[in-house]
Design a protein around this nucleic acid. Structure first.
Lengths: 223, 223, 223, 223
DNA sequence: GATGAATGAGCGTTCATTCAT
DNA sequence: GATGAATGAACGCTCATTCAT
């Protein structure tokens, strides 16, 4: 019978429960990446997770709600990676920071390529890009960086809009590059181009030095 | 039963056939815009088109193949609009051209908002952005414009990559703006910001004159 | 996926369609009688009807709506049988008429015993006893008979209430008799007792003659 | 997995056990009344009872066996109420007794309306009406009353059958009245009509005095 | 004894596709 | 060519029951 009420599901507190939730989420994520949205069905997820379908519904109210944590996990991991990068490198010149971010982002998109591709098919995912809490933090950092470097940049009329534009410029171009440009140019070239676009947008001059800097910064980022 | 073989369907040559195809395509497009991918099923399409399901399969091998022409139509209309804009204004300064393009694009995305949103859920659509023949023409025009204005721009190492980046920068940011930024900033502001990003990327300075120019250009575009 | 919208189903106009609907309804009825409400599931019905499940949903919006016509058919057949009986015998004394009705009803309940038992498990069936159009006609006839024989009966304060009570007295007792009394007393004895209860309720004296009359009437009813 | 074998469950002897059984039964009853047969599932019952599902199966072999005691409880309470009424009023005229019984019964059905409605959906409940031990006692009392008043009544050929018919006449009509007649006539009117039917069936004349008697009897019944 | 996480058969329903007419 | 009735695999989800802890 179809769902008519919105059942409450238990929040895993016990060790066993947590493990099961983890198994389900991992299986669902893997399935999503490997087979796309088509293979993403509850029976398949359960099978892949090695649990009964019932167990899936023990922890998730429905299919859509399994996507949610997958999306959040990914978005959080992404945002935290960037946030961490920004913290560790906040004293570097903005040029280096942008470069580091784009590089890191492109690596992330490359690593989880299939997952990102599948998720772009989910309206909830697309429409929430840049609005999730963790991403809001990133936007906050971007605003702070813009303000800190104000004197070196083009005059900014609306910092919210500038941050929004910068964020999506980097995000979209990087995704697009991984999705379509990957086999046309070496990743480093694409990354460099996105960095140029971003820097020029805010008024910085991407010098050839950026490459030099980046090598140095690259090492630093690994610490 | 799901499809197992890949049957060939006739290409409509007769007048009546063409009309039927048209009806199907129109119904499918309307359905897609109004109800999203969920309402997009062959029975509904046939019903809405006022033909039998069988007729749908007379002209289209399967469901996915109905999407194809819808995607192409939209992309072509978009590309042709831009192409036309470029032809009519090729003697204007590049600044004005970019401004006109972004403006026109944002209008198109706004007008067909639901359709674009639905199509972004289709992998085939997303992955083909910028690769369809009509868009290739646009990319060609972009390359030509870049070359023509070479002296005024940043030095361009790889014109293909620059055109690709410029194209996607404009496309992605405009879509993103319509999807998410529409209720945060007035459309003109968003458009202006995207124009700035595009111009600065290639080395032009977006002056306040752009606004003045644009009014004039706006009229010109209507001719 | 569960039902979210309320789809319109085609009303069978064509010959083939009608046949399919008939097959489904017959299979569903048989299934209901033989296996009770437990065996009454759409897949089983389709199988038993020799059609695909999809065909069931082609003609019925959902499972519950298959029960409706089964209920109505049965109730209509019952009401029409009684109505017919009343028409054919309206000039007989009321005693005979009541006797004929109870007899016929008990035969019907006996014949479709399993079906009635299963349907009593359906809230919609129970709560609508006596309220369906065809039964309303029977109630109308009962009122007419009561008025026609007014002089011979107890004074009737509220004819609606009297008819209601008479109807349900006969209906309930007859059903109860078939359900539980069938193996304790011969059917004729039970019928006689119900007739007595009904006649005495309205103020008639069930004489031994009723038995004689009934034999005669019995024949008449077969014409 | 559905049950395949029929496991034996312990009968609660300990105090704690009894309490648990009680909690389960109360929760199940409440659930049945409030949500109908649909809400009556073992997980819900356990949750509502504040015990684990396992505990339910500790005391009841299966779902159906939880219904049994609920049915019996209700039937017993009903029978005992009637039995008590009969004991307290055995010296009154039969007219008053019948009136009291129907009144009490209608009150009971009204009070536990939802529960009765839900239970009528259970075959086991319907088929056992009048056959449970406590109801057998009521039937015995009815027989005794009929014999005691034999001289004032119609001659009774088969006292078993008369008692059976009287019992079900009252039971069925009263239930029907609560289920369907409640909003068409005031309860008192319906009760009066049922009393008339019952009295006339056995040969008593329901006088207007019954109303007077009843007021007096009403008080008596409260003692 | 008690628990509740886990199970999975099975249900209601959808919809891409076929094919007899 | 056109139709639309028919199909059935497959999906999302429920819930009676079990059993390791």
């Amino acid at each position: 019978m179809p769902r008519t009420t919105t059942p409450k599901r238990r929040t895993p507190r016990q060790a066993r429960s947590k493990k099961t939730v983890e198994r389900i989420l991992n299986a669902a994520t893997k399935l999503l990446a490997h087979e796309g949205l088509d293979g993403f069905n509850t029976n398949r997820i359960a099978q892949e997770a090695g649990v009964g379908v019932g167990s899936v519904y023990e922890y998730f109210p429905g299919k859509d709600e399994i996507l949610e944590p997958i999306i959040n996990r990914l978005a959080n991991r992404e945002a935290e990676t960037i946030l961490d990068l920004l913290s560790r490198n906040e004293n570097r010149p903005l040029e280096s920071i942008v470069w580091l971010v784009v590089k890191r982002l492109s690596e992330l998109y490359l690593e989880h390529h299939d997952l990102y591709v599948a998720l772009r098919g989910v309206p909830a995912f697309r429409s929430s890009i840049g609005t999730r809490p963790s991403e809001q933090q990133v936007l906050g950092k971007i605003r702070a960086l813009l303000q800190k470097n104000e004197s070196k940049l083009h005059p900014i009329a609306d910092i919210e809009l500038t941050a929004f534009t910068l964020f999506h410029l980097v995000e979209s171009l990087t995704y697009q590059t991984i999705e379509q440009g990957a086999d046309r140019w070496p990743l480093e070239r694409s990354v460099e181009e996105i960095v140029h676009a971003a820097l020029r947008y805010i008024g910085l001059t991407p010098g050839p030095s950026s490459t030099i800097l980046s090598n140095e910064a690259d090492k630093a980022a690994k610490d």
